[in-house]
Design a protein around this nucleic acid. Structure first.
Lengths: 137, 137
DNA sequence: CTTTACCCCACCAAACATGTGGACTAAAAC
DNA sequence: GTTTTAGTCCACATGTTTGGTGGGGTAAAG
């Protein structure tokens, strides 16, 4: 399951997508509009900034805003960043690969199953972007 | 990611699938062959028994064995049992549904994305069974 | 009635999740 | 140039989950 942090991140990103190209948005505004704890949100947005998804301005008229076109930011990228690996096993992860202990990958049926799960999941997450977070009209 | 517990469960189930219809298998045998901590494994197997996946016999000649044909036991069932929900959001789970707070499902883009992810994942996990845990010959 | 082997309960440490508080810094406004 | 605004950074608190262990109890076989 996605952590609350991840869900908060998506709520914030949805809001910033709505406001894309309309200048910086206050953390406090996102916090109240999306019902996300202010200080927690602060950490999340900072993390997204460090990952080059968002940018920010300090002082009056400041706030956070999307650094890139939301249609170019994949859901998979955000999940990996905030929630961690998408794959269900370390030995099957593209971005967080780690060999399993006591497990021969070439003779592990679970390995093959989880590769299929990963591919099916990525097929969705790599094609959906931030604009898909907004409800259809 | 799958918990270690889940990985242990699958290792044990793979072993019991190999030994299907060959009588009860000792916990200690599974533990040494599959390199799973004995006491931890005990808890896991007991849980699988209570869920009607396994059965056991006490005393000499006792041990654990599969209660059903391994080809009839879906991977999805085991994951739900040992690891928890398969869906990435409570509001999108078939077996563990729970409404999201502060979130209108009908106007939540993430909701729709995660339904697609869930369906893609289930498509694999509902068709794969314990026999798929064994390496192909 | 002793041995074997599963059953059951309680506990434990470490890691992670979910926050909060407070001081600091940069930018803008006055 | 000092005040105000708003993001940055660090530390800590607390609760839950994860991964695991210890020990006694119970049922079946011999």
């Amino acid at each position: 399951m996605l952590s609350k942090k991840s869900q908060y991140a998506f709520k914030a990103l949805a809001y910033l997508t709505e406001k894309y190209n309309q200048g910086p948005v206050l953390i406090s505004e996102i916090s109240t509009k999306k019902k996300v704890p202010l200080k927690f949100l602060e950490n999340i947005l900072l993390e997204l900034k460090k990952a080059d998804i968002l940018d920010s301005k300090k002082g009056k008229g400041g706030g956070y805003y999307l650094k890139k076109d939301p249609a170019q930011v994949k859901v998979a990228t955000i999940v990996r960043l905030v929630n961690g690996p998408i794959a269900m096993l370390p030995c099957v992860s593209l971005n967080f690969y780690h060999r399993c202990e006591n497990c021969d990958e070439t003779a592990c049926g679970l390995h093959d199953i989880m590769i299929k799960v990963r591919d099916a999941t990525l097929n969705v997450m790599e094609t959906k972007t931030l604009v898909d977070l907004l409800p259809m009209k």
